[in-house]
Nucleic acid binder design. Structure first.
Lengths: 203, 203
DNA sequence: GTCTATATCCAGATAGAC
DNA sequence: GTCTATCTGGATATAGAC
């Protein structure tokens, strides 16, 4: 009779090496640019040869795809672990800080998630579903703050995207735009709440 | 005695071919992605062989650099030819439309100007000066609208950048964020003018 | 000015030994 | 699972004939 093992040590080892490959890829992307990533460099970094990587990923794009999924999972986790305030303004402030700081903390990750830097890369359906989940979580945060209009969401997302884009492109690693987050949220909320009766202004 | 020719036909021809190369490069960048540009494709498109391009540009990066300069000149021209209204709100609306529509009209151009897509590309001092001139023109527009605070400029630029970034990344060619421009400008101006005594709200 | 030929190097990917 | 060897194809760039 065949006994199903509780833990599959081989699968665990396989997964561990996959993770190691991805971590090397992230480091290289951060250091030399997302588009400059090569399998040769990844292999060298983890002490193997390029063909060995194909045991874990069937192509270079599959690595990008796993990185894309990874990045979205990181952001989902970041969102999930916050204690979201009931006050709409506080909650939106927190959301904006989470998003902008996440975006500006790693330019390569930001490019992979939010820009179309790699000419042929399209995320797989599974990875793209994670990106949609990020979007959905964002929408829920807006909704919880009393903002249900899709156009309001688009405008709010654009404000966060704008701060992130300016910071990463013009002063990567700095905080010239990051420190405008609270002011930007006030600007945004004053505007969208003034169209309804909902909001309160901070004293 | 040597007669200085009024027109240098050879130089004109040289310049015309340079322009032809750049136009081919733009078309290819738009079609296949900025990072996917190759000298082979550029040469083929204008009916020559790759080595011939070196008569006009001493490297591939020199082509990117000329494209970068070209893009900034285009935007400067676009800014210069507008009839700028005296009314601050009207002027800022126009500026935002010019910037966002320019950005979203050509994703490759947008990436080259405002994102760090090509890993090793740094514009030359001459080309970068044009980018600074674009920035300076923007600052002057803000100043003319009564906005002299550098942080106000950064926030306003971020709003325009955010709409552009979202539009190019999530719906290239569409207008889901472009059509939020007027609303975004109102949001921004109401905010910055409310901090001083300056502004007027549109009826 | 444009070409052929080539240098040099590198990429991603596969076959098959071990 | 990892390797060597190799395929295939591409890149940028240069030398030198014409």
């Amino acid at each position: 009779m065949i006994v199903e093992p509780v833990r599959d040590r081989r699968a665990e080892r396989h997964q561990a090496t996959r993770t190691e490959i991805l971590e090397a890829a992230w480091e290289l992307a951060r250091a030399h640019g997302l588009a400059a990533l090569t399998l040769r460099d990844v292999a060298t970094k983890i002490g193997t040869r390029p063909p060995s990587l194909y045991w874990y990923f069937h192509s270079k794009h599959a690595i990008y795809d796993a990185m894309f999924a990874d990045a979205n999972r990181q952001l989902l986790e970041r969102i999930a672990k916050q204690a979201w305030p009931d006050d709409p303004r506080e909650a939106m402030r927190l959301l904006a800080h989470v998003v902008v700081e996440f975006s500006t903390a790693d330019v390569a990750r930001y490019q992979l998630m939010f820009q179309r830097t790699i000419p042929d890369f399209e995320p797989s359906a599974e990875s793209y579903a994670l990106a949609l989940e990020v979007l959905e979580q964002g929408r829920q945060r807006f909704h919880a703050a009393g903002l249900a209009d899709p156009a309001d969401f688009d405008l709010g997302a654009a404000v966060m995207a704008g701060l992130s884009a300016q910071q990463t492109a013009n002063e990567p690693g700095g905080d010239r735009w990051v420190r405008l987050v609270d002011d930007a949220v006030d600007m945004y909320l004053d505007h969208v709440f003034s169209k309804t009766a909902g909001g309160r202004r901070q004293p």
